[in-house]
Amino acid sequence: MLKKRIIPCLDIKDGRTVKGINFVDITDAGDPIELAKSYVKQGADELVFLDITATIEKRKTLVELVTHIAEEINIPFTVGGGINTIEDVSAVIKAGADKVSVNSSAVKNPKLITEIANEFGSQCVVVAIDTKYVDGEWMVFVHGGRTATPLKTLDWVKKVEVLGAGEILLTSMNNDGTKAGFALDITEQVSKAVNIPVIASGGAGTKGHFKTLFESTDASAGLAASIFHYGEIPIPELKQYLQNENIAIRWT
């Protein structure tokens, strides 16, 4: 049986993890490699690294980091944040990333999705979408959620599937940071609208939120950052809970 995936997201700035606490088995939560290895040990099914560095030196630092991550961890990982060109994609994939996620750059240049799919396969392309409920409609936002677009989320997801996306990472801005639960309605609408896997993000605050996500939507995975970084919900505890609740998860 295909398992529901639990995916921690790590924010990276200048090669360091932005936030997080020191777990018992690591001494430096700012070291992305140590934190990633700890998550793997805890049973994370996949990892997402989101680079929020804004400097010119960005790509070089990121490629070095991706190379080290790929040497050290034995589960799949996605790299996103400022991936604008096929050259950016090529650099991180060749360094060992399994997938890239594109967000604003795909809205600006939708052909990028097809270019990546043609060169590296659809399985490499995760289209990340920041969505916000505005005047009765779920809309697409870009630039870290700061800029509105005229795109309706349900139209955009169908388009990115046709263009060659392999997965959708859907973040509800209304829910992100609230710890009040995932946006179940738009997650389910998106899952029904496309035939590619959907990763739900934004709003996870309790173990029960993951159970509700997997029971009431077709989401293939749940992604969260702070609840894992700050140790609020240890991954083994979350997985044990989901297993007891008869959600199919990977048990290591």
Binding site: M1, K3, D45, G166, I196, P197
Partner: peptide, 13 residues
């Protein structure tokens, strides 16, 4: 066939 999500991505027994 597109009966379920394709690609088949993730962990399976």
């Amino acid at each position: 066939p597109p009966n379920e999500k394709v690609p088949h991505i993730g962990w399976n027994s």
